[in-house]
Simulated assay, not measured.
Amino acid sequence: MNTPESPGVRKRGRPSSGNAMSNAERQRAYRERQAQKRDAESVTMNKRAQQALESTAKLRSQRDQALRAQEQAEHKAREWEAKATSLLKQILELEQRKDAPLAWYQDPGIEAVYVLESRLREEKHWKRVASMGAFTRREVADEWLKSMLAHSSMIEYRVNRIRFKTE
């Protein structure tokens, strides 16, 4: 019988290649492969982190722009509110003036003024012609009345005398 040490007989199993590594070499190769894998993952994670930081910076910039726009809109709204309040005060003052006939025109030497009033033929109430103001003399008011009547067919005009309260 042939023994395993004899030259013509082959051993059982896979033949050796002659490049066999020791256990220490195999472990070192494994650690190197793991380190390379970690480095590749680290580079990928750094890229992802950088992208996340960039997108976060972009979102913060957009948020800041939106906050500035909101602040400007609120400032503009406060300005408009202040203007509206001012206009409302003016309207209330004018309403009070309307109730006190021509109080703004009072002159100690004048006891009455004449105003031009108009209305559409179908309407019941007369309204002052604001652009005409008030006249201190009846003759001047009558002249204006004549000129207004000459140019109107649908509107009626009249001169009204307003007396001031004498105390």
Rank of each mutant, 00 (worst) to 15 (best):
M1N: 07
T3L: 15
P4I: 08
E5F: 09
P7Y: 12
P7F: 14
V9M: 09
V9N: 14
K11F: 01
K11A: 06
G13R: 00
R14D: 03
S16G: 13
S17R: 10
G18A: 07
N19R: 15
N19L: 12
N19H: 15
N19I: 02
A20L: 06
S22D: 06
A24T: 13
R26L: 15
R26G: 00
R26E: 08
Q27H: 07
R28K: 14
A29W: 04
A29Q: 13
Y30A: 06
A35D: 10
D39V: 00
A40Y: 05
S42N: 14
M45K: 10
N46C: 08
R48P: 01
Q51H: 04
Q62P: 00
Q62V: 03
D64P: 00
D64H: 08
A66G: 04
L67K: 15
R68Y: 08
E74R: 10
K76V: 06
A77P: 02
R78T: 06
E79W: 00
E79Q: 13
W80T: 06
E81M: 05
K83V: 04
K83S: 08
T85A: 15
T85K: 14
S86H: 08
S86W: 05
L88P: 01
K89Q: 14
K89M: 08
I91P: 00
L94I: 03
L94Q: 10
Q96C: 06
Q96I: 02
D99Y: 01
D99T: 07
D99Q: 12
D99H: 05
A100L: 12
A100H: 13
A100P: 01
L102H: 15
L102A: 03
Y105K: 10
Q106P: 01
P108W: 02
G109T: 12
I110Y: 04
I110H: 04
E111C: 09
A112K: 11
S118V: 04
S118Q: 15
R119F: 03
R119Y: 02
R119I: 01
E122N: 09
H125M: 04
H125S: 11
S131V: 06
A134L: 03
A134W: 07
T136G: 01
T136C: 07
R137Q: 10
R138L: 10
E139I: 02
V140G: 01
V140W: 01
D142F: 03
D142G: 00
S147H: 09
S147Q: 15
H151K: 13
S152R: 06
S152Q: 04
M154E: 11
I155S: 00
R158G: 05
I162P: 11
F164Y: 14
K165A: 13
T166F: 02
